[in-house]
Simulated assay, not measured.
Amino acid sequence: MATIKDVAREANVSIATVSRVLNNDETLLVMEETRERILTIAKKLNYTPNRRKKSKSTNTRDATAAATIGILMWATKEDETNDPFFMSIREGIEKQCAELQVEIAKIVRLKTNIEYDLNDLDAVIVIGRIDPAEVESVFADSSRIVYVNDSPDPLQYDSVIVDLEEATANVLKYFTSLGHNRIGFIAGQEYIQKFRTKEVFHEESRLKAYERYMKDNGLYNQNDLYIGDWTTVSSYELMKEAIRKGDLPTAFFIASDSMAIGAIRALHEGGKSVPGDVAVISVNDIELAAFMTPPLTTVKIYSEQIGRTAVNLLIEKLHGRDIPLKVVVPTKLIVRGSCGGAAN
């Protein structure tokens, strides 16, 4: 019987590419000729994705080689383009699966999929903050779910997260060490996503940490807080609003690099220099950050490693681990020109 590895070998592509083509992943950038070649070879080899019943096998080689997993995420293709953070996590999952010869049988994007059932899979990785009750309505085995960028219940589910509260506190400490006492904050609204009903508001961890630090140090000013959505355009408009108010803070902590791009554009258009008039630090360290004008100081999140770690946790579960694990991936402040500090 043909395997996904056989199809990949004959098509001269990766296992991840075969899986994404066969599952009609719209985010995959591949030539039409390559797509057609994969489909033709899969048909010629009579390849059918494995949909075996889930077992509790402890045989490491068998459990890994035969495993089929799904990715459940809220982000659309456009969302990933606007904020590469989630794209990098997904790519980390795909790379690790390819290396371990684990098949990604389904990638479900909740904004574009209405009906879905994942119970024919061995395990599921959930990217983003999605209501666990909703997830278990489409994949019943909660012991084989790993949450990424969220930890809804560490006593029940595996999860891989970043301590954004600690990262935020470190950014604010760094700003104050540079002499800034007026520090503004720009972020998006955070929600717990649901499938068929309205999402539920969730307090964003960076906002929580910002308010706590500023209040504890007698620096909090409600007027320096700006909340919109997680887009470059939203941050651009929020910074324009701050400029119109006058009396700008001397520094801004911005919750993502993509948002920082919009905010810095607004500052430049408003005749404000960065970091001369306003210092800026953000989060993620996307590839573009180092090439901005000025280069962007940012908290590096190892997003690809987050995705790889999620796969490793799933494989451990398939091999019989019963105790849920919560992995906290560290961050690092990358100092560049936008904050006025000495570059790393």
Rank of each mutant, 00 (worst) to 15 (best):
residue 2 A to W: 04
residue 3 T to V: 07
residue 3 T to P: 01
residue 5 K to I: 15
residue 5 K to W: 01
residue 12 N to E: 12
residue 13 V to W: 06
residue 14 S to C: 07
residue 14 S to G: 15
residue 24 N to I: 04
residue 24 N to K: 12
residue 28 L to M: 14
residue 28 L to A: 04
residue 33 E to G: 01
residue 46 N to A: 08
residue 48 T to V: 15
residue 49 P to F: 04
residue 50 N to L: 14
residue 50 N to I: 11
residue 53 K to F: 07
residue 54 K to Y: 15
residue 56 K to T: 09
residue 57 S to L: 15
residue 58 T to D: 00
residue 60 T to I: 13
residue 62 D to C: 07
residue 63 A to C: 07
residue 72 L to M: 05
residue 77 K to F: 02
residue 79 D to P: 03
residue 85 F to K: 03
residue 87 M to D: 10
residue 93 I to G: 05
residue 93 I to T: 02
residue 94 E to D: 13
residue 97 C to M: 11
residue 99 E to N: 09
residue 99 E to P: 08
residue 102 V to C: 08
residue 104 I to T: 09
residue 107 I to K: 11
residue 119 N to K: 05
residue 123 A to E: 01
residue 124 V to M: 00
residue 127 I to Y: 03
residue 127 I to F: 05
residue 129 R to F: 12
residue 131 D to Q: 04
residue 132 P to V: 03
residue 134 E to F: 12
residue 140 A to K: 15
residue 140 A to W: 03
residue 142 S to H: 14
residue 146 V to S: 10
residue 148 V to Q: 03
residue 152 P to L: 10
residue 153 D to K: 05
residue 157 Y to E: 14
residue 158 D to W: 01
residue 159 S to N: 08
residue 160 V to C: 04
residue 171 V to N: 13
residue 175 F to A: 06
residue 177 S to D: 12
residue 181 N to T: 15
residue 188 G to I: 03
residue 189 Q to P: 02
residue 189 Q to W: 00
residue 198 K to P: 13
residue 198 K to R: 14
residue 201 F to D: 02
residue 204 E to G: 13
residue 205 S to I: 10
residue 206 R to I: 13
residue 208 K to Y: 00
residue 215 K to I: 06
residue 219 L to N: 01
residue 220 Y to T: 11
residue 221 N to W: 08
residue 221 N to Q: 15
residue 221 N to V: 04
residue 222 Q to D: 09
residue 225 L to C: 15
residue 227 I to Q: 09
residue 231 T to C: 08
residue 232 T to S: 09
residue 238 L to K: 02
residue 239 M to C: 08
residue 243 I to T: 01
residue 247 D to E: 15
residue 247 D to Y: 14
residue 251 A to E: 11
residue 251 A to H: 12
residue 252 F to T: 10
residue 254 I to T: 15
residue 257 D to V: 14
residue 261 I to V: 14
residue 261 I to A: 08
residue 269 E to Y: 04
residue 272 K to S: 04
residue 277 D to A: 05
residue 279 A to D: 06
residue 279 A to K: 00
residue 284 N to A: 14
residue 288 L to N: 09
residue 288 L to W: 10
residue 289 A to Q: 15
residue 295 P to N: 12
residue 300 K to A: 05
residue 301 I to S: 09
residue 303 S to H: 14
residue 303 S to D: 09
residue 308 R to K: 11
residue 309 T to N: 13
residue 310 A to E: 05
residue 311 V to P: 14
residue 316 E to K: 15
residue 318 L to D: 03
residue 318 L to I: 05
residue 320 G to Y: 03
residue 320 G to F: 05
residue 322 D to A: 10
residue 322 D to N: 10
residue 324 P to E: 11
residue 325 L to K: 14
residue 325 L to G: 12
residue 325 L to S: 12
residue 326 K to W: 01
residue 326 K to V: 10
residue 328 V to M: 06
residue 330 P to C: 13
residue 330 P to V: 13
residue 331 T to A: 11
residue 335 V to E: 08
residue 337 G to N: 06
residue 338 S to K: 05
residue 338 S to V: 09
residue 339 C to G: 07
residue 343 A to K: 10
residue 344 N to R: 13
